[in-house]
Amino acid sequence: MSILDSFTRIRLIAGTTFLEAVRQKFFNSLLIISIALVGSSTFFQQFDFGTGELKFITDFGFGALFFFGSILSITATTQLFFYEMENRTALTMLAKPVYKLEFLAGKFLGAHLLMLSFTFVITLVLSAILYWRDTALVARLGDEVILDGPLVRYGDVFLFGFLQWMKFGILAAMTLFVASFSNTNLYTIIVSFFLLIICQLQYIARDAYSGMEAGWERFLVLGLGLIFPNFQLFNIGDQLVFDVDQALPLSTVLQLVGYGVIYTVAFLLLAQVNFRRREI
């Protein structure tokens, strides 16, 4: 019963967090910019890239999703957390029979929900544009080449969006972790961006590790590789959408989801450790 109550409270806190976020100009402007950018990729059609055009649009769209999604994930999470702390609505909330972990989980889920809507909209726009160019291309080339399948696997565009969303989840949880011990907005955002870059480039360390001799350096690199999730794992867009012969095996998708969930939960629990001691 009390576990159910916990979920109810988390859901309620996530709800206000999400509503708060959707009302922010920042989210709306970022969404519009991203849509505009994805849309603008079609201007390149005049260069007539042929089937390469579709690849170009996809790369462009995925790039925009990654770039703006990361910005939004970090800034929105920071904003939403500090909004409650600075306006002392957190004070009212935590004076009720609400666990601090429930509060954090609610904040996280609200931000995560925000990222879900963002990712979904961008992915939808991207698919629509791809479909439009795809049909135009097929109409033009239809007689010349024999296609043994669709040019683009649309389901996989969404699968890629979903995996990116999992990654944004880790990022939001890391941001909450930073926010849990920092006193200012700006510090949180800057540190989180550093973490993002580390996670993005983490594979370099991994490569270096494989070439290293045993010793404390190797140990250090290994440790860093475990602490910071490897965000490159989630960037499998090309293989997903265009590799017609080889769809991504379900087991890989599940592994990635598991990887994301573990890191997300771990960072949330770390955030909780700090947040418990925080003076509100």
């Binding site: 109550d5 109810t8 409270r9 309620l12 806190i13 206000t16 509503l19 708060e20 009302r23 306006n87 002392r88 609505t89 004070l91 009212t92 909330m93 004076a95 009720k96 029979p97 609400v98």
Partner: peptide, 29 residues
């Protein structure tokens, strides 16, 4: 079983008064 009114309270501004009270009622189960 404790109610608390903070100093200079501040609430989610986009809710109506009734929605706000209802929200906290649900938080308090």
């Amino acid at each position: 079983s404790v109610g608390f009114l903070p100093e200079a309270p501040y609430f989610y501004r986009y809710l109506t008064g009734r929605e706000l009270v209802r929200y906290y009622a649900r938080i308090c189960m």
